[in-house]
Amino acid sequence: MPNEHRSDLFPGALEMMILQTLRRGPLHGYALAQAIKQASDELVHVEEGSLYPALQRMLKAGWLSAEWGLSARKREVRVYKLTAAGRKQLERKVSAFERLLSGITKVMRASES
């Protein structure tokens, strides 16, 4: 199905992936979207319509900071960087996510057997 990889993410998933991706270093919006796509073997496609509002929300929450810089093609872009608060948030998110995932996995295994 062509729309398979565009399926809706669960709430907070996009934020978590953005935070995780930015942990490796600052990125601008387009590069961020590309990085997520590649890291997920193109299984996750970030919709721009969600990405930018999410970035703004995260700026407001103080998890990210933004500065204008240059892209690899020397184009003026806004570069996002993880803040200390963002790092903490990521840790919280990941542990919550792992608990959720292990829970789901158990349920899935139980019903299989």
């Binding site: 919006g29 387009y30 590069a31 930018y52 703004q56 093609r73 184009r75 003026e76 872009v77 806004r78």
Partner: peptide
């Protein structure tokens, strides 16, 4: 204006790709 410029840069990067 910043947001608009950011979005336009995004589209331009995609076009280049």
């Amino acid at each position: 204006e910043e947001l608009r410029r950011e979005v336009d840069a995004h589209i331009a990067e995609r076009i280049d790709d």
